[in-house]
Design a protein around this nucleic acid. Structure first.
Length: 309
DNA sequence: AACCGCTACAACCGCCGGGCA
DNA sequence: ATGCCCGGCGGTTGTAGCGGT
């Protein structure tokens, strides 16, 4: 028969995560590292499905992720990659280490899809044959997987060209700083950034309270403040290293297996927020000699991803 | 000021594949 | 060789916030 549900639905809480739950999850991951999600609900007392815990961690709590404020370059990159890979968000996300597949997926569905539709409706022009890209996606999606893999191999060169185009289309420096390592500069006051900052700050505050028993915490609502994103992230990542570096600072949870995460539990510091430098260097470094495999190598950075940045 | 529609984001669901006993 | 368990992925839905009327 069908597989039993991963969780007993009646006993599983659903809906938005509370800061308290986030705190419990973060604390657990810091202690045990990401992975073995099955054990997380029982060990933490969280009334959440293991999958929900994993998703919450990878999409929201994991250090090193950036939310909102997609730059033009990121946007172009996503468009090109989507045209090349189709709706393989995890694969696309692997090129944007700071972004989660869910984030990219949402951004595509809410922003880019409409944008491209509009562009194709108005004769395309603009960016890069997006209409054709969408058609290509369908073609690829329709292809059997093995065939698709082979086609992907042959498309790598196209991808490199496309990515190069994407990165060169906008010669000006990124309008919005990609990386927050430059300091706790207040992000543009967009809604997305604000909402994330709000949530992250919640966790940061809770963590502070958690570090200092007796400190209050447990407030479900806080008012967002400027620059809270990086501060929250630093709190989270700092906690990770503080507690033995159990937190896997994987910028790409989708492609890094738990084995890799285990390796990272050796105490690798959380990576500085990566930027495009890795990709750019890969694109522009013709002497890399990786060829098709090189692309995949970039996709799956082994060990400490921060080495690439 | 209230209502309505839209947008953006977080989270859930079902399916699939790899690893292991 | 087979079946099961677990993690990962992509699609979809729910909902809060925002802007326009």
């Amino acid at each position: 028969m069908g597989r039993p549900p991963c969780c007993v639905k009646a006993e599983v809480k659903k809906g938005p995560w509370t800061p308290e739950e986030d705190l419990m999850l973060v604390a657990y991951v810091q202690e045990h590292g990401p992975g073995n999600w099955r054990a997380v609900p029982t060990n933490t007392g969280l009334m959440r499905c293991s999958k929900s815990c994993r998703l919450r961690w990878t999409n929201y709590l994991r250090p090193g992720i950036k939310r909102g404020n997609f730059t033009d370059q990121e946007e172009k990159l996503i468009v090109h990659l989507q045209a090349l890979l189709g709706n393989r968000w995890a694969a696309i996300a692997s090129y944007l280490p700071e972004r989660t597949d869910n984030d990219i997926k949402n951004y595509w569905n809410t922003h880019l899809k409409k944008k491209l539709k509009k562009m194709s409706a108005t004769g395309g022009g603009g960016d890069d044959g997006e209409g054709g890209g969408a058609g290509e996606v369908k073609t690829r999606a329709a292809a059997p997987k093995g065939q698709w893999e082979r086609r992907l191999q042959t498309d790598i060169h196209t991808a490199r060209q496309a990515l190069r185009d994407a990165l060169s289309l906008d010669p000006s420096p990124p309008a919005k700083p990609l990386d927050s390592s430059s300091g706790a500069t207040a992000p543009p006051s967009s809604q997305a950034a604000t909402s994330y900052a709000s949530s992250a700050e919640n966790i940061a505050r809770l963590l502070e309270g958690w570090m200092r028993p007796g400190g209050g915490g447990g407030k479900t609502t806080t008012t967002p403040s400027s620059g809270s994103r990086s501060s929250a992230a630093s709190v989270l990542s700092g906690e990770a290293s503080h507690s033995g570096g159990a937190t896997a600072p994987t910028p790409d949870g989708s492609t890094v297996t738990s084995k890799t995460k285990d390796e990272e539990t050796a105490g690798a510091p959380p990576p500085p927020p990566p930027a495009f430098s890795m990709l750019e260097s890969w694109l522009l470094d013709d002497g890399m000699g990786h060829g098709e495999v090189g692309l995949m190598d970039v996709v799956v950075p082994l060990g400490d991803p921060s080495e690439f940045f």
